Simulated assay, not measured.
Amino acid sequence: MTEKLTIAALRDLKLISEEEVGAAVEAFLANPLAPHFVFKEGYRLDLGKAVRRHPGADDFVNRGNAGPLMKRPFVLAAILQARPLRE
């Protein structure tokens, strides 16, 4: 059942930590083309796909004049709303 939950729901259930969510955000900001991010409990997420599927994040992240500090909250929102796969 937990396979269809969002990252935010999994975090609230303590299956994914706040630190892991932060690491996922930083991983995307460092390399938007990075491979899947794998969380400790075996959940994996295509960070680029999560951002592309989130309308606000996709628009904002692709702006040339937006720096990492401005992109971070949008990337965080996209990741929290994404539904990871379970390995």
Rank of each mutant, 00 (worst) to 15 (best):
M1P: 08
M1F: 08
M1A: 13
E3T: 07
E3N: 09
E3A: 06
K4T: 06
T6H: 01
A8T: 01
A8Y: 09
A8K: 12
A9R: 08
L10V: 02
R11D: 01
R11A: 08
D12V: 00
D12E: 15
L13A: 12
L13C: 03
L13P: 01
K14Q: 13
K14R: 14
L15W: 06
I16P: 02
I16E: 02
I16S: 05
S17L: 07
S17Q: 10
S17W: 06
S17E: 11
E19V: 15
E19M: 13
E19S: 15
E20L: 12
G22Y: 10
G22C: 10
G22R: 13
A23F: 10
A23S: 14
V25D: 15
V25I: 15
E26W: 10
A27R: 15
A27W: 05
F28G: 01
F28L: 04
F28R: 03
F28N: 01
F28T: 01
A30D: 15
N31W: 09
P32W: 11
P32R: 14
P32G: 13
P32Y: 12
L33W: 10
L33V: 07
A34T: 14
A34E: 14
A34K: 11
P35H: 10
H36D: 14
F37D: 03
F37A: 05
F37L: 05
V38N: 06
K40L: 07
K40C: 04
K40F: 07
E41T: 10
G42E: 15
G42N: 14
G42V: 09
R44P: 02
R44Q: 11
D46W: 15
D46Q: 15
D46V: 08
L47H: 14
L47S: 12
L47I: 12
G48N: 11
G48R: 08
K49A: 13
K49S: 14
K49G: 05
A50M: 04
V51N: 07
V51D: 05
V51L: 10
V51P: 09
R52I: 06
R53C: 09
R53G: 12
R53S: 13
H54V: 02
P55K: 14
P55Q: 13
P55Y: 11
A57Y: 03
A57I: 04
A57R: 06
A57D: 04
A57F: 04
A57S: 12
A57P: 09
D58S: 13
D59P: 00
D59S: 05
F60Q: 00
F60S: 00
F60A: 01
V61Y: 04
V61P: 02
V61L: 01
V61M: 02
V61K: 01
V61C: 06
N62P: 00
R63C: 03
G64Q: 05
G64N: 06
N65W: 07
G67M: 02
G67V: 00
P68V: 07
P68A: 12
P68N: 11
M70V: 09
M70T: 09
K71N: 07
K71P: 05
R72N: 04
R72L: 03
R72P: 02
P73A: 08
P73S: 07
F74L: 10
L76P: 03
L76H: 12
A77S: 15
A77I: 05
A77G: 11
A78F: 10
A78R: 11
I79P: 02
L80N: 09
L80F: 06
Q81W: 03
Q81E: 15
Q81F: 00
R83M: 04
P84W: 06
P84R: 07
P84V: 00
R86Y: 07
R86W: 11
E87Q: 03
E87T: 02
E87W: 02
